[in-house]
Design a protein around this nucleic acid. Structure first.
Length: 304
DNA sequence: AAGACGAAAGTGGTTGA
DNA sequence: TCAACAACTTTCGTCTT
């Protein structure tokens, strides 16, 4: 705690004065300006009771796409002032209310359902909040563009989630999403492509490296093996072994090789199951890795 | 006996005419 | 729109440890 007390660097005094108006901290003893041009993040008003708080606060709850109206609901009022108006004006209000109701219910009812589903799948896959937000945004856009028509709501939700995962570099495989949402893998892939194309969302081809940590921990591999796998992967990318191949296959093969080198052998079967590819694919990638990267010697020396 | 390896045939998706 | 094609899977038989 003692180290937390600020001392004046000039004279060593501890009588520092915070001058909020000027944004400065000044040493009372020697007048040295320790910090200046500070930004005051506090509120500049005071609240003594709830009424005053309501009046003085200028912000509300944080805005979020995971609420169907981004957390900012506004209705055309029903009670109070309306009844002070008469005749025409009052009817106008009622008409507006009716229209707002009609417009909003169609889209919002859909959004409410979809976002509930989105959260369910998201939490099942243990996705970070940022990804949920992103996919909610994508879904909202899709609904507004009428892209859901003719497709099941669930599949579009899954597609949005998949896209969001990719963009945030926490890729989940289509299989995982399929399992979590109960939607056919092909269907998710289709809507994913459709939605991203229509919305002009640019997705980088997913990087095998992003899969490594998850696979590695699922296989209970050591951190060294994991970083070894990253090394191998980078080498592989230099030799252009990665383009055109499925990223999961490459990631799996790198892990498999890395495990061999570090004497943490896993069977091809185990690695394949977790990565969601077959042994054959791992074998093919594995073969290529050995050939191009001259890793054969390394494995042998370890074995001996 | 289990795991690794390889060949052959099948599948879904992309591409180019 | 259709055929060719590459990547990946499935299946199955053989080899190694």
């Amino acid at each position: 705690m003692a180290s937390n007390i600020k001392k004046c660097p000039e004279c060593g005094g501890i009588n520092l004065i915070l001058n909020k108006d000027r944004g400065e901290i000044i040493c009372k003893d020697c007048g040295f300006v320790i910090e200046e041009k500070m930004v005051d993040f506090g509120q500049e008003w005071r609240e003594f009771d709830h009424d005053q708080a309501d009046k003085r606060r200028r912000t509300g709850a944080p805005m979020t796409y995971t609420k169907f109206d981004k957390g900012l609901g506004t209705d055309i009022g029903q009670k109070g002032d309306v009844y002070k108006l008469s005749g025409k004006e009052r009817n106008k209000y009622f008409r507006l209310r009716k229209w707002q109701y009609r417009i909003s219910t169609a889209i919002e009812r859909n959004l409410k359902l979809a976002l509930a589903e989105l959260k369910r799948v998201g939490s099942y896959l243990k996705l970070p909040k940022s990804v949920e937000e992103e996919s909610a945004r994508i879904y909202t856009l899709a609904v507004q563009r009428g892209l859901v028509r003719g497709r099941s709501m669930e599949s579009v939700v899954s597609g949005a989630l998949y896209a969001a995962c990719r963009r945030h570099e926490v890729p989940r495989t289509l299989d995982e999403l399929s399992e979590a949402s109960g939607i056919d893998k092909k269907e998710i892939g289709r809507t994913y492509r459709f939605v991203t194309r229509e919305l002009g969302i640019r997705i980088l081809p997913s990087n095998p490296v992003d899969y490594l940590p998850r696979f590695a921990s699922a296989l209970k591999l050591s951190a060294e093996t994991q970083s070894k796998a990253v090394e191998i992967l980078e080498l592989a990318q230099k030799h252009e072994l990665t383009s055109g191949r499925g990223p999961t296959g490459i990631a799996a093969a790198s892990l498999y090789v890395a495990a061999l080198i570090n004497n943490e052998k896993r069977t091809q079967r185990e690695v394949a199951d977790i990565a969601g590819v077959t042994e054959v694919t791992i074998r093919n990638r594995y073969k290529e890795l050995l050939k191009k990267l001259n890793l054969k010697d390394k494995i042998k020396t370890k074995k001996e």
